[in-house]
């Protein structure tokens, strides 16, 4: 079984010790996905697996045989950048840029969670079918992605502008 990465089928590594992150960066040279802490604490390695955000550093590549992975390189469409990428530029959602691919992939995964009404730790009414997407919700839902430059305010602004009210 192959792993589908940004639409292209890739053979899983023969050595099961290779992480999904290392497969992306070292074998496929998709260096948009970043290695920050390599222990699941920073979120820089966030990618989408069948649309769900995951940490590629805590994943063995072989676990994802038969799955479809989207990285930051796969987010832009035919007609240019993803709306969230544009929003990050508009709101200064980065300084050094190292956490940015993870932040953006994470937020795209978060939008799907919001769209189906998944609650978060700060959602007051667990029974509600829809989530009111406040700044507090955005910060809680993005807490797995750290930015050491301190661009969080810009990041949250970009995300809330892109997704608040977008049929959520």
């Amino acid at each position: 079984m192959a792993i589908r990465i940004n639409g292209t089928e890739t053979r899983a590594p023969a050595d099961p010790r290779v992480s999904l992150l290392d497969l992306l960066r070292e074998t496929l040279h998709l260096t948009g996905t970043k290695k920050g802490c390599n222990q699941g604490a920073c979120g820089a390695c966030t990618v989408l697996a069948d649309g769900e955000r995951i940490l590629s550093c805590l994943a063995l590549a072989v676990q994802f045989e038969g799955r479809s992975i989207t990285t930051i390189e796969g987010l832009a469409g035919q007609d240019g950048m993803h709306p969230l990428q544009l929003a990050f530029i508009e709101h200064d959602g980065f300084q050094c840029g190292y956490c940015t691919p993870g932040q953006i992939c994470s937020a795209v995964g978060m939008a799907a969670e919001l769209a189906r009404g998944a609650p978060s730790a700060v959602t007051t009414d667990l029974g509600a079918a829809t989530v009111r997407f406040t700044g507090e919700e955005a910060r809680e839902r993005m807490s797995g992605n750290l930015c050491r430059c301190g661009a969080h305010n810009g990041i949250i602004a970009a995300i809330t502008q892109t997704y608040a009210g977008a049929a959520l």
Partner: peptide, 16 residues
Amino acid sequence: LARAILAGASAQIRNM
């Protein structure tokens, strides 16, 4: 149970 799980880890880790 829902609150305990949502209080743990991050969304990425809870997905895995």
